[in-house]
């Protein structure tokens, strides 16, 4: 039975109480009244659980998801996306326990594909990772509140991230399917969750070829301080090309698979340099990689080209980004069902 609180009916009083109870992210919330939660549920059985959410293994019931979605400021139309994202995060392949509890600054990035997301305003255009778009902001915030309140990952207690990340407030975009030269990342109405660092910018104002742009992408994708490549079996990269960069790359005849292959082959560092990395000695490599001795050899940082996700998002301008994953979680997709 969900606890019901009776509070003074002012925004200040409700906000103060939720902060005092460590029930919110530090920003004002919409009070989760029974009427608002019922509207969010839209007929779903409140007691139905999608599974136990770590680190405290609490039941992710529709009701609790809806309460947190109301608090985040989500409209009920966003709820199917929130539900699909939670379903995806609870897939064992996503390793939500690790994502929640690690000292790494990982946050689940929610990528929305398909017409439903577009119809409710999930934004994949100009400034999509930033502020200004209610669906992006409140879906991402609902996910964070769920991870805190249902999963029990409070900073320093369950969520042991050393520094945390702005992406832990909200991290949700759509793919800019209209301006992509390729097929969507996923077909139909689908949510993909990806345990990523915040975006690492790729500024290329001069290249006029695919190789030129992707050389900058590949260089941004690897660094000595990155997890990617150290825990090899689950290392993944997400390349989010701005539409202008994507048009240049595709104009050179590159398919998505070509981009994946190029980044796989070129986002590498020489073994001699890798020995200076911050994970050297605790890295987890297969035997064939451990057998390499040539200091100039450049072993791969992800297991295969399929572990390089390529999508298009953003608006005008010569910027793209790379999002390294935390390397103990693999991306998971789920259909959006209404």
């Amino acid at each position: 039975m969900t606890e019901v609180l009776e509070l003074d009916d002012t925004p200040e009083a409700v906000f103060a109480e939720f902060c005092a109870r460590e029930w919110c992210d530090g920003l004002p919330i919409v009070p989760p009244t029974e009427d608002r939660v019922r509207a969010m549920l839209d007929g779903r059985p409140p007691g139905h659980s999608l599974g136990a959410m770590p680190p405290l293994w609490r039941a992710a019931t529709f009701e609790k998801l809806a309460i947190n979605a109301v608090m985040a400021g989500s409209e009920p139309a966003c709820f199917p996306i929130i539900v699909a994202a939670v379903e995806a995060m609870l897939d064992p392949a996503f390793n939500l326990y690790g994502v929640q509890a690690t000292t790494h600054p990982v946050a689940p990035l929610v990528v929305v594909n398909g017409p439903y997301g577009a119809s409710i305003g999930v934004h994949g255009g100009q400034g999509c990772f930033g502020p200004g778009f209610r669906a992006n902001a409140t879906i991402g915030r609902a996910i964070r509140l769920i991870l805190m309140n249902v999963g029990g990952a409070w900073p320093g207690r369950g969520d042991m991230a050393t520094q945390g990340s702005p992406a832990k407030f909200s991290y949700c975009i759509a793919e800019n399917e209209e301006q992509s030269p390729w097929a969507p990342l996923t077909e139909g109405d689908v949510v993909t969750v990806y345990g990523g660092e915040p975006p690492h910018n790729v500024n290329d104002h001069v290249s006029t070829t695919a190789a030129g742009i992707l050389a900058n992408v590949a260089d941004t994708a690897v660094s000595l301080g990155s997890n990617v490549g150290a825990y090899f079996s689950q290392a993944q990269l997400m390349v989010v090309l701005g539409p202008e960069h994507a048009a240049t790359v595709a104009g050179d005849g590159f398919s998505r698979a070509d981009v994946q292959r190029y980044v796989y082959e070129n986002a590498r560092l020489p073994l001699g340099l890798l020995k200076l990395s911050g994970m050297w000695g605790m890295h987890d490599w297969p035997g064939w990689m451990n057998a390499i001795t040539d200091p100039d050899a450049r072993p791969p940082r992800v297991p295969s080209p399929d572990d390089v996700f390529v999508l298009v998002a953003g608006g005008s301008g010569k910027h793209s980004c790379v999002i390294p994953n935390c390397t103990f979680s693999r991306a998971v997709s789920r259909p959006i069902t209404r």
Partner: peptide, 10 residues
């Protein structure tokens, strides 16, 4: 007064 629901999981 306003009645609100707890967001904390069980």
């Amino acid at each position: 007064k306003i009645r609100v629901l707890s967001p904390v999981g069980v």
